[in-house]
Design a protein around this nucleic acid. Sequence first.
DNA 1: TAGAGGATTGAT
DNA 2: TCAATCCTCTAC
Length: 195
Amino acid sequence: MKLDQSFYQRNDVTKIARELLGKGLFTRFSGKTTGGTIVETEAYSNSERGCHAYQNRMTRRNEMMFGDGGHAYVYLCYGIHNLFNIVTNGAGEADAVLIRALEPLEGVQFMMKRMNVKSERRITSGPGKLTKALGIDRSFNGDPLWSKHLWLEDVGQFIPAGDIVRSPRIGIDYAGKDALLPWRFTVKGNSWLSK
DNA sequence: TAGAGGATTGAT
DNA sequence: TCAATCCTCTAC
């Protein structure tokens, strides 16, 4: 069952980031479905320096973060990688969850083809890689997450609280002390986590 | 309008 | 450890 928009519109981005673990993220083009279960997320909120919308600073790039929860925020990182975020909270509240890793579930062969690799090993173990494997690019920026080409779904997987690990977020040293916030959530011992 | 740098990745 | 690579954002 696809996740309802009310799931995303709650005013608690770290709670949503935690609950997204075990949920399915899928894309479907030309009759081919690809996707997997989320095993690594990071929360970003307008109240801290790691966030593109810190202090509600709106730019052309991040304006989608200010929209309604339940939409995609996709941007280009290092000129090479598309990073996929889920916008949360209500309109005007710029919070988002970065999806950092998936455990492959559907269309593995097709994802391997997109990645141009012969092994399924680590094809979705990083934020730039999973977007490529699923065919997500910046043209998806602002799209709703219940469409027929891109959606999140409850696949019936339950992650016990004891299997969820909190740690500081990756690659945001510029955020000063906010880089220490334990807002990265991972599934303990999962072999598909990013490096 | 020029210049700096980034929520990464894979190779050395 | 380092280059790839191209917007976006900021300052002038």
